[in-house]
Design a binder for these strands. Sequence first.
DNA 1: AAAAGATATGACGTTGCGTAAGAGTCAAAT
DNA 2: ATTTGACTCTTACGCAACGTCATATCTTTT
Lengths: 256, 256
Amino acid sequence: MKKYSVKDLSKLAGVSVRTLHHYDDIGLLKPAIRTEAKYRLYGENELLKLQQILFYKELEFTLQEIIGILEDPNFDLIQALENHKWALKSKQQQISSMLNTIEKTMSNLKNKTMITDNELYEGFSKEERNEIRNEAIEKYGNNTIKTSEKYLKKLSKEQLEQLKKEQQDIFKNLFRLSSNSPETEEVQLEIARHYSNIRKFWGTDGSSDAQKKEYRGLGKLYVEDPRFTFIDGEPQPEFAKFLSEAIRFFANSQLD
Amino acid sequence: MKKYSVKDLSKLAGVSVRTLHHYDDIGLLKPAIRTEAKYRLYGENELLKLQQILFYKELEFTLQEIIGILEDPNFDLIQALENHKWALKSKQQQISSMLNTIEKTMSNLKNKTMITDNELYEGFSKEERNEIRNEAIEKYGNNTIKTSEKYLKKLSKEQLEQLKKEQQDIFKNLFRLSSNSPETEEVQLEIARHYSNIRKFWGTDGSSDAQKKEYRGLGKLYVEDPRFTFIDGEPQPEFAKFLSEAIRFFANSQLD
DNA sequence: AAAAGATATGACGTTGCGTAAGAGTCAAAT
DNA sequence: ATTTGACTCTTACGCAACGTCATATCTTTT
């Protein structure tokens, strides 16, 4: 009968010695025998069992779950796999939604910096501005361009320009109104313009989904990161707070 | 200036008091002031910062990463988001592959139990067997059926019957040969039949991909779970080991 | 003033090992 | 026969993000 030392077995299975110690500790995989000096010795059966363990571990079962699966031959494996499948699927969906949020955040971050750039270039002529913008496109490279293309490809350049200008206009008005309460009608009118503008920017202006959640998320974004509300190179935390509250009020009162 | 106690803030933000303690401990969110009795008091700014924290936490940034993001206003947020996006995407792919493995495992588990069932029903007439199978279909319910349909829909009932019978035949031969070395030619011939049979069952028999990995995975499955190799209601660990080694040898010598 | 409610600070538990630390064991080289 | 080098053993802290007591100290209500 072949016997493997901890090191032998660890190399055969591609795990660390510590892992074998651990599995012994928690009762997942005990050595076949112990020498007088308490050295662990494993046999063929233990090698096979270790392979089983690693199989289920790759599927991200916890060690406790694996103990349960392997210790009881009557364990309902199909049911366990079914449950695990659902857990994994829900995790997958969760990740999808996180990716969505990240995309939107990045898209908005980029857009904001572009807008403040525009403001900085306000002193230049139209032609100069176009030159600068083209340089920027070259700098950003194709990858960045393609990433945002998903959201922007439906918009012609002129439409995009129009949307950006409208955003600048909205923000100027809102900044002017920012000493008022966020709930006043004037402010809420500008927020409504902003909402409509953003949905065009997202390319979802035709959708029946009001995107209340997403829009509120955007509102939170303004306070979540000062980089979203730079004006003349300075962060505006107070203005961010104002914006965020105005959007929250709008979403709660106007959107289902 | 409004001040929030730990409990107030925790309710406002939907986190536990312990969480606030923890964030204080690690320097992520310190209270605005402490009372004489060392009670924590938070202001509006802390509420806003907590919201930022929760935003990034939902994206599964670690607390240390969030500290980095928030402490330095010049932090390259876009780059951080980009990196995080990749991490999430790779996690998503990993989950997809795990789901694949689970599907195959379940599909095989079901197939095996069906085969042993067939063996158990060997004394019955064909009509009786069909009756029983239909009952099983009702029991398993539509969901289960549809899950396996993916793999089976391309096969007609007769083809499926044929494949199952061939599998039974192969296993009988292999069991008879199981006192030999797994590497003998007779054994390897049966394994080759099995390989071809399995690929038909998987619906991939036309594919150019030899599916070495998948087939080896199947071999491991036989030892990974005794339920795969029940014969006459008894688990056959020795036979499982034999099968597994025969398949490993076949995959290594015959498949690229 | 006593009882009830909040809050504070430890400190251990969780998951799956990594990473030493200190000590004993075994086989080969001196 | 012994020293060395390669292994192995047990013990135990560390990590992430808190949950969950336990015990002590306020603050507020009756």
